[in-house]
Design a protein around this nucleic acid. Sequence first.
DNA 1: ATAATTCATGCAATCGATTGCACTGGCTCA
DNA 2: TGAGCCAGTGCAATCGATTGCATGAATTAT
Lengths: 351, 351
Amino acid sequence: MADLAREAGVSASTASRALRDSPLISQETIAHVKQVAKQHAYRPHLGARNLRLKKCNIVVLILPFNYADSDVLANPYIFKIIGTIGSVLREYGYDLLLSQMDTISEQIDDRYIHAGIAAGAIILGRGDNDPEKIRKLADTGIPFVILGPKLENQDYCSVGIDNHLSARMVVQHFAKLGRKHIAIVSDNRENRLSESYSRFQGYLQALKELNFSFNPNLVAQSIHSGNSAYEAVRKLLHDAPEMDAIFVATSDVVAISVIQALQQSGKQIPEDVAVIGFDNIDLCDFITPALTSVSQRLQDGVATILVEKLIAQINGKDVESTMLEGSLVIRQSCGQADFNVLNGSSINQPQ
Amino acid sequence: MADLAREAGVSASTASRALRDSPLISQETIAHVKQVAKQHAYRPHLGARNLRLKKCNIVVLILPFNYADSDVLANPYIFKIIGTIGSVLREYGYDLLLSQMDTISEQIDDRYIHAGIAAGAIILGRGDNDPEKIRKLADTGIPFVILGPKLENQDYCSVGIDNHLSARMVVQHFAKLGRKHIAIVSDNRENRLSESYSRFQGYLQALKELNFSFNPNLVAQSIHSGNSAYEAVRKLLHDAPEMDAIFVATSDVVAISVIQALQQSGKQIPEDVAVIGFDNIDLCDFITPALTSVSQRLQDGVATILVEKLIAQINGKDVESTMLEGSLVIRQSCGQADFNVLNGSSINQPQ
DNA sequence: ATAATTCATGCAATCGATTGCACTGGCTCA
DNA sequence: TGAGCCAGTGCAATCGATTGCATGAATTAT
């Protein structure tokens, strides 16, 4: 910019103001400076500007799991949400920095926010972090939002769908279609506050609401991989041969493997066993039978809200957490013939 | 840092040097400054440091396609490579900035490199950009590498697998297993320099090497989506009912849909039709039959080399483009019973 | 004609670090 | 004892922008 100013025969301050259309500068000077700038292909140094203005147009996206945990990364859902968040951020003029981090800690502040690299953070889920760690991060006062359900007494901002409600919706839908022996496959490795846990609780409550008795033989564990899905199916077929429906609460990727495993055991889907997954990934449409699944409403909800809440915080505003209703996208695998989308209000409320 | 210096009773310069263990500073001063720093939880402002040192530890990853093109993003392959690049970059002390950009242009320089935001760029493929655009970017002299095969007379650095060789390997493998009527499904929407085109050329050459005649009825188009895969299969079954193998050169995601479509038409895989895909995504192992596929060797090759070449450029070194051999990961879908991995040297060279 | 006002511009400080050079005091050595 | 040396430290410039305040010229008011 010093060069620009010299070239245009003005001071650096005038050049700076001219480029920003300051009313302090005469129109002809502005025009002249801009012309010289164009001629010399002047481009501002954003790093310097950010330093001076104490601003910055980068948001860091924290992936609170290990890249080596390829099971998580193999889930297209994750990439979908990253892409959507990226688009929304760009609309607001922010770029997105990706940072993998095994555990959530003040390192986010040290390395990014306080360091002047990023203005705020979006954390893609609680991972298997102790809630206390997240609370400590909140104590630093940095702007951040976290993907996931709201916990009790939580003083920071989270955005996610209501897993409990979604699970109830799934179970009630099975019941409506006449299924009596509804199994659940879920990932309970993580701590008891995880999404998976909420989904399981929702499953339990729905059974209660339906006056179905809980049968532990209808419960199987799975992590986010295909192998464990095969084991889960084997276990369920052995322990509860009367099973006529499976809610794969882990993810669609696991649900697809569950379907494969069932088919290999000679089961017809959905005639013998109906299946519903979670995440509503694109692939749901392209497998046979097409997979009914719970949408986390990334496109029309979560990503946008995450970004908006974060930017509000960056601008010094207070924000509240949000819980969205998930929606059930109905395809063939659950045994209902017609495509449909249900939302949370469709479920029967307990008296 | 000014506060730190005052607190420790030294000048800012001494404080700065002390924290960086400069030999100019006495041991006791260093110890004292560090202790005060720890006490007051001093953390350096990287933005300021970068400005002064004209360095920066961010690399921008350009996604040269539209986020709205969800077909591309749905491909787990893309996320896998982003994750792997992120890990490798982190080992070298760099963070990763994600930037979607419909077309490749000098905007990368303006917005990121010259602006002092990033030190270099990794471009995830040529997308459907005119090669001239990429050459113009190269003319700016910024450090960047691009994922993909090397073109003729290319003066910038690219890293990718040899698509031509990989395609030949696939066709020859089909032939070795006794298949005579080998179809290809590929994406020829993009310009003629794309990966897809090279794969198609490799297919043609392999036929020649095998003295198989080329049959246009065995060629079908597909974009990166499941729907188009169904159409491709319908077309092939109609035009060439004798077909006994399909090389799905587009991607594994499409290959999976191809398998579904074939099965729905009553074909047994691999007995009636053998199938081989491209990318070797994790899902290959979990579908039935497990999908034989060409690995782009992201884990053991491409990502690391991309990063190393970029960093070499950032450090002012000249680098050459690299073409890796792909490897064929053999599973059930191609009709060979035993798991195996072939590399390029396994193919028959033309005399 | 002089004071008051406006308009356009430049000086210099600032953001938070790093670093060349000058300076100080204590030491060695002739 | 005085010149030379060196270790340890601070001043001030620098990276590339932005901005409060002062300056100076032109214009208007008295």
